[in-house]
Simulated assay, not measured.
Amino acid sequence: MAAGLQIWNASGVLVLDATQRCGRIKGAVQLTGANGSVASDLSDGTPFWSFQPDFLYRHISNVTPPPIVSINAGGISWTYSSTAGLNFPNPVTGWLFWGVF
C-alpha cells in the first residue's frame, strides 16, 4: 500500500507525487550574514537544502545579498557576495535546512 501525498491540478494532471521519496532533515542553522559551513553526512541519499529568509529587503537601497549555498555528500557551505564599497549592506539572514531524499 502506497503512502504519501499526491496533488492534481484542475485538469486532472498530477503536479506533485510524494509517494516515492520523502526527505529527511539532517540539520539546520541560523545564518547571520557571515560565510560558513557545517559538516554533515549526506551520503545516504540525494542531498537537498532550503533557505527560509527572515526578510527580503530591509531598506530602500536594496543592498541585501542572499546566501550562495553549496552542498555535497560531506556537508553544506554558504557564502555571501562581496559588499565592499557598498553603503549600508544588509545580508539576508534566516534559517538554512538540509537533508537527503
Rank of each mutant, 00 (worst) to 15 (best):
P65Q: 01
I25C: 13
P91T: 01
G27N: 03
H59W: 09
V69C: 08
L86I: 07
W98D: 04
I68E: 14
G27L: 02
I25R: 14
M1K: 14
Q52T: 14
S61Y: 12
G23D: 03
S77K: 07
K26Q: 12
I25D: 12
F51S: 04
S43A: 13
T93W: 01
S70Q: 15
K26I: 00
T19R: 01
W98Y: 12
A10I: 09
Y80K: 06
V13P: 00
N35P: 12
A84M: 12
D44T: 06
R58F: 10
F88I: 13
N87T: 15
P47N: 10
W78I: 05
I7W: 01
Y57K: 07
S50V: 11
S50Y: 11
A34G: 09
A84G: 09
T64G: 08
A28N: 09
I71L: 03
I7V: 14
N87S: 15
H59I: 01
W95A: 09
L42V: 00
V29T: 07
D41C: 04
C22P: 11
V63M: 04
W95M: 14
T19D: 00
T64M: 06
P91A: 02
V13F: 03
I7E: 03
G75K: 06
N90V: 10
M1L: 13
Q6K: 11
S81C: 09
A3N: 15
D44L: 05
D41Q: 02
Q6D: 00
D54Q: 12
Q6H: 00
S11E: 13
D54L: 06
F101V: 09
G75E: 02
L56K: 07
T93D: 01
W49E: 12
W95N: 13
F55K: 04
S50A: 14
P89D: 10
L42E: 00
F97W: 14
I71V: 04
I25Q: 14
S70I: 06
P91L: 04
W49M: 07
S40W: 04
G12D: 02
N9D: 14
Q6E: 08
Q20T: 12
I7M: 05
F55E: 08
G94S: 02
